[in-house]
């Protein structure tokens, strides 16, 4: 019998973040231009497994996804039991740059979704010269809240069930049932309070509307891809952001919600592959 293995390899790397030791889990597949992927709030790097098993991508790109501290298989720092997890812009940027350097990724293309889509805007503002291209999925400088995040972490509500229930509506109705529930399963597995701690970053600590002029797309190209069914970061939110960033390109994805790479990988690749090809062509100039 021939066994089927995914070409994905996972390891842990030990790094110092916020002055404390962290054991960070990452997975990777493929070879070529480094493509660093940033997962959504309350989830982990598994969201990118379809990209890592797509030879049209991995023949040309080394796809790497790490789990933020507290997420997935990355362990929270010692003493976590007495803390309330809370992601900040500075901590998020430090984690991305530290992991990138630890894995010796030279000027990676970086693709982030949701909170990852927000942080790529900050990366573009502060460190654009360190990246070959930045891709924000469901990316906007700001978006209006639509639920009370205190429901996400309280003892009388099951954390996994409520996190999945909240985000379930962000998946497009066209997305395949298997992929929908695979996406929700990851939310159901998130640690208590982690999604809520990420939402602090999203809602409170990263209103970037006043800073968009700092982005220079001549230093680092910026591509913003948003699903038409995403009502958290709507296509209009993304377009309003792009209008204030000269040279930013917007792609609105049909039949897709908030979790493009995870909820409907086949539909997503219709938009992603031409973009990666374009980036690859620029790299070879």
């Amino acid at each position: 019998m021939t066994l089927k293995f995914d070409p994905i390899m996972g390891r842990y790397v030990h790094v110092t973040l916020q002055g404390r030791q962290h054991r960070v889990y990452f997975e990777e597949a493929g070879q070529g231009i480094p493509l660093l992927c940033l997962h959504t709030a309350g989830a982990d790097g598994r969201q990118f497994r379809h990209m890592m098993t797509d030879s049209a991508i991995t023949d040309h790109f080394r796809v790497i996804a790490f789990d933020l501290p507290w997420h997935g298989k990355s362990t929270p720092p010692d003493g976590w039991q007495d803390e309330a997890y809370c992601l900040t812009t500075d901590a998020y940027i430090e984690a991305i740059r530290t992991v990138r350097d630890a894995l010796d990724l030279k000027k990676p293309v970086t693709l982030g979704c949701s909170i990852g889509g927000r942080i790529v805007l900050s990366l573009a503002m502060r460190h654009g010269e360190e990246f070959t291209a930045l891709i924000g999925l469901d990316s906007a400088a700001y978006q209006t809240g639509w639920y009370d995040s205190s429901w996400l972490h309280r003892p009388d509500v099951h954390g996994g069930e409520i996190c999945a229930g909240i985000v379930s509506g962000l998946i497009a109705p066209q997305s395949p049932t298997v992929n929908r529930w695979d996406t929700l399963w990851q939310y159901m597995q998130s640690g208590p309070g982690v999604f809520k701690g990420d939402i602090y970053f999203y809602r409170v600590d990263s209103d970037l509307r006043a800073e968009l002029a700092k982005i220079d797309t001549r230093v680092c190209p910026l591509y913003l891809m948003t699903g038409e069914y995403d009502f958290s970061c709507t296509p209009e939110d993304t377009m309003q952001t792009a209008e204030r960033v000269w040279g930013a390109e917007v792609i609105v994805m049909k039949d897709i919600g908030h979790f493009a790479m995870s909820e409907n990988p086949l539909q997503f690749r219709r938009y992603l592959l031409p973009l990666l090809e374009k980036i690859r062509a620029k790299c070879s100039l």
Binding site: W146, I166, L170, F231, T234
Partner: peptide, 13 residues
């Protein structure tokens, strides 16, 4: 359902 009419919270928003 069309975009943003597909979820109770989308409609509430």
């Amino acid at each position: 359902p069309p975009p943003h009419f597909h979820d109770i919270f989308a409609l509430a928003k």
